[in-house]
């Protein structure tokens, strides 16, 4: 029991751990809101990994162009912050566009040719990941450094930590806000209503005259863009440079979270926190007790197992609890 408490409370043992948990949860929240969005619109976006990765690369590249570096220097030396803000916004816009484009392509292929987005989004991602790996290992690498990564972005572009020394920054609150806005969009607007109806009841949506194909494309594009946001904040808030394999696992985790949250962006907030908590706790356990493997893979496996087994088990549990209560 002692060991369990140690495991469970590990992430809250210091500001460093707690802050990083929130930071990690924030990034996952952006991506899983995206995953939930696709699921709501009746599509499966399996390209999250590459959408995050590509957007992160775009962000890191924009923010390390010579003019961006000059703008950051200007802001850092007490000059006008305007140019730096411009590059920050530009990087954000292009990250959104990059993620969105990678969602749009499979969406459009589905709407136009009926190609399964399950397949196309996955294949597009699988094809793109090694390309990005190559770009980071080769032409876009910071040649002065020994890391497999792009050059680090300037201080002016880095989001300030709100819980030093941890990485937790305003992106966590933005992520909560994004998930809430997504939830409000789905439940409180006509467009959101049509999107979820097209997702749960495609034939009915078509019968009722909703633009089902456009909705498919929009859902996938929005999903990609939200993954792109995760990539953007991964650079400006967490890593400050695009490492090779930066997104590895994040896209899949996001999908798992969206499924746990049963496609509901509002439920994505606690689900991301839960997921980040488990991941952080296991990381800490690994670091403090000589467990010699990448344990996150096992944790993920367990979670996926429960997603598939969740409903019957939850049902049985509820039945048992009910009986207890009745007694």
């Amino acid at each position: 029991m002692n060991a369990f408490a140690e495991f469970a409370l590990g992430p809250f043992s210091s500001l460093w751990h707690a802050g990083n948990l929130l930071d990690k949860a924030g990034l996952l929240m952006f991506a899983s809101t995206g995953a939930a969005f696709a699921l709501k619109s009746g599509t499966f976006n399996l390209g999250g990994e590459a959408q995050i990765y590509a957007s992160a690369l775009v962000t890191a590249m924009i923010l390390s162009t010579p003019s961006a570096v000059a703008a950051a220097e200007l802001a850092g030396s007490g000059g006008s912050a305007g140019p730096a803000l411009f590059f920050f916004a530009l990087a954000c816009a292009l990250a959104l566009a990059a993620g969105g484009l990678l969602g749009f392509i499979p969406g459009e292929l589905k709407a136009r040719f009926g190609a399964s987005e399950l397949l196309t989004s996955f294949l597009l991602s699988a094809a793109l990941l090694p390309v990005i790996d190559f770009l980071i290992a080769g032409p876009l690498r910071d040649e002065g450094k020994n890391l497999l990564a792009t050059p680090a972005i300037a201080d002016a572009f880095r989001m300030r930590s709100l819980l030093p020394p941890s990485l937790m920054n305003a992106s966590f609150f933005l992520a909560c806000g994004t998930a809430t806005v997504a939830a409000l969009f789905l439940s409180r607007t006509r467009a959101g209503y049509r999107l979820s109806v097209a997702g749960t009841a495609p034939e009915f949506a078509r019968f009722a005259g909703f633009p089902v194909k456009r909705i498919t494309v929009a859902g996938m594009t929005a999903s990609g863009a939200l993954h792109g946001l995760a990539g953007f904040f991964a650079i400006v808030g967490t890593w400050f440079m695009c490492h090779q394999g930066l997104s590895s696992g994040m896209g899949w985790s996001a999908l798992a979270i969206a499924l746990i949250a049963r496609h509901n962006p509002l439920a994505v907030i606690p689900a991301s926190l839960l997921y980040a908590w488990i991941e952080s706790a296991s990381d800490i356990a690994v670091l403090s007790s000589r467990v010699s493997f990448d344990s996150t893979a096992i944790v993920q496996g367990v979670i996926f197992l429960f997603i598939s087994a969740k409903l019957p088990i939850a049902g049985q549990l509820r039945a048992v609890l009910k009986k207890r209560r009745a007694r």
Partner: peptide, 13 residues
């Protein structure tokens, strides 16, 4: 369901 799932996942992990 979310809550039950969450508890189970945490426990197993």
């Amino acid at each position: 369901i979310t809550a039950t799932g969450a508890v189970l996942i945490a426990l197993t992990a």
